[in-house]
């Protein structure tokens, strides 16, 4: 394999890795404050992918318009899922297993719902970008990949600024180590949880839109967040930055391996690598060891 092909593959992989990073952060931010693995995130991604498809094909043909509306929609869905599914059990102080089971249930309901309704068809997003590639020396850069990469980066930078520069962001970070005590400072815990799910929903909106654009929309598109969940774990639970790094690395490694050894062996190599990595470094790249997990 020539050097150019390798660079090309890494470039593509990094773009895909940007989406994994979004998934990792969307999954990780809820884990951070409520300490459960939120598989419903995949469900919200699926809902957003379908929403993005319908909005862009029927109502708002422009890329930026339909993306923006999908992002807002994702935020609202995130808030609704928290209010309807997780708040009732949180108020009753139920164990983490309840959250875990509910989150899987939401993912399954969404998958089955879309399978029953529109499962027999594939829905391709409209071609937003006319010329799909441009030449950069010997490299061929896909415009939609470049768009995904720059948008993922922009969203993650905006989120990072929000978490560092605003009081609400600081409260979310404080709640990651102790969700009860911020109330003593006048922080409304319910609001913080709601905002966190809203952020996860916004990230799901971007993820769903980009996955829909790259592949086609199917009821199983949400299960693609498995890569993001893996990135979040490799990155280190509790470290959003670690998740981003792991997401990008995972994407690059995956593309490279697919080009080198083929698509069927790649997942086997990657999953083995993950098992070995976590044996050597169970806290992940940047994380701390967590004992509470569900």
């Amino acid at each position: 394999m020539s050097r150019d092909v390798i660079v090309q593959q890494i470039l593509n992989g990094i773009s895909l890795g940007g989406v994994y990073a979004l998934e990792a952060v969307g999954f990780g931010i809820v884990f951070n404050i409520l300490k459960f693995s939120n598989f419903s995130h995949g469900g919200v991604v699926t809902i957003c992918a379908y929403f993005g498809f319908f909005i862009s094909t029927r109502f708002i043909p422009s890329l930026w318009g339909s993306l923006a509306v999908t992002i807002l929609f994702g935020g609202v869905i995130g808030i609704l899922v928290e209010k309807l599914v997780f708040r009732p059990i949180r108020i009753q102080n139920k164990p983490l297993t309840y959250f875990f089971v509910n989150s899987i249930t939401v993912a399954m309901i969404v998958q089955q719902f879309f399978s029953a309704l529109w499962g027999s068809n594939y829905y391709p997003f409209p071609a937003f970008i006319k010329e799909t590639v441009f030449q950069l020396g010997k490299l061929v850069v896909s415009k939609s990949y470049l768009l995904m990469l720059s948008m993922s980066a922009a969203v993650l930078i905006a989120l990072s600024l929000f978490l560092r520069r605003t009081k609400t962001g600081i409260a979310i970070r404080a709640a990651s180590s102790d969700i009860h005590t911020p109330a003593l400072m006048g922080v409304n815990t319910d609001f913080i949880v709601s905002i966190t799910f809203c952020i996860a929903g916004i990230l799901a909106g971007v993820t769903g839109f980009f996955l829909g654009m790259t592949y086609t929309v199917t009821p199983f598109i949400g299960s693609m967040i498995l890569k993001g969940i893996i990135a979040s774990i490799i990155g280190g639970m509790g470290s959003l930055g670690g998740g981003v790094i792991a997401g990008v690395l995972l994407g690059a490694m995956e593309s490279l391996l697919i080009a080198e050894v083929g698509a069927s062996i790649t997942p086997i190599i990657i999953y083995f690598a993950i098992i070995i990595l976590l044996m050597v470094r169970p806290q992940g790249i940047a994380g701390k060891l967590y004992s509470v997990k569900a």
């Binding site: 009081k167 970070r173 404080a174 990651s176 180590s177 102790d178 005590t181 003593l184």
Partner: peptide, 22 residues
């Protein structure tokens, strides 16, 4: 609170800023 309940993962200044949340 008992045991101070300092937020360990955010900075000292951010702990104080959170104190002024309202």
């Amino acid at each position: 609170p008992e045991g101070r309940k300092i937020f360990p993962t955010i900075s000292v200044e951010e702990n104080l800023i959170l104190g002024a949340y309202v």
